[in-house]
């Protein structure tokens, strides 16, 4: 056992904090060790001196007063903790909702602005993909006539084709 621990044990023995078994065991050890005997003796003297010469201290208020104060403090602390937990919850919700609302507002703005775009009819947003490289293509858009034309350099005898289709 470490020296510091033994000293603490002896202090506990002097203060009467040890069980009977522990106290008996420690007393046996003290009997066999002169250094521990000296320490025990000193501590006993100290205890005796303190108990005889300590100045009496009188509390300005009764102990009941202090207990009620402590109870009040606990109550106030509890409610404060509760309200801080509530505000933390609110902050959490706000933090989560703020970006979502931001995105929603931007989307709303874009959607509301949509119908205000100039109505260019067919001229807007058209594209074509030519799949045969040898064929030339010319595109013409007429916004006034609401018509888009793709002229393809590809000859088809449609009169003959058309007749053949129905003859088949």
């Amino acid at each position: 056992m470490k020296e510091n621990e033994i000293e603490l044990k002896i202090q506990a023995l002097v203060d009467g904090e040890l069980t009977k078994f522990e106290a008996g065991k420690l007393r046996d050890r003290i009997k066999n060790d002169i250094r521990l005997q000296i320490l025990h003796e000193r501590l006993m003297q100290m205890k005796d001196l303190i108990s005889k010469h300590e100045m009496p201290r009188v509390l300005p208020e009764s102990s009941a007063f202090y207990w009620s104060k402590i109870a009040q403090e606990i109550e106030v602390g509890g409610s404060a903790a509760q309200s801080s937990a509530q505000s933390l919850g609110m902050k959490w919700v706000f933090r989560r909702l703020a970006p979502v609302l931001g995105v929603a507002c931007v989307a709303l703005l874009i959607t509301l602005q949509g119908p205000n775009l100039p109505d260019l009819g067919i001229v807007l947003d058209h594209n074509h993909e030519l799949l045969t490289d040898e064929i030339d293509v010319m595109t013409f858009n007429s916004a006034d006539d609401s018509m888009s034309v793709v002229w393809i350099d590809y000859s088809m005898d449609i009169q003959k084709d058309y007749m053949e289709l129905w003859l088949d």
Partner: peptide, 9 residues
């Protein structure tokens, strides 16, 4: 509105 694809015949 009209979309027209055209070519020679």
């Amino acid at each position: 509105s009209y979309m027209v694809l055209a070519g020679e015949s």
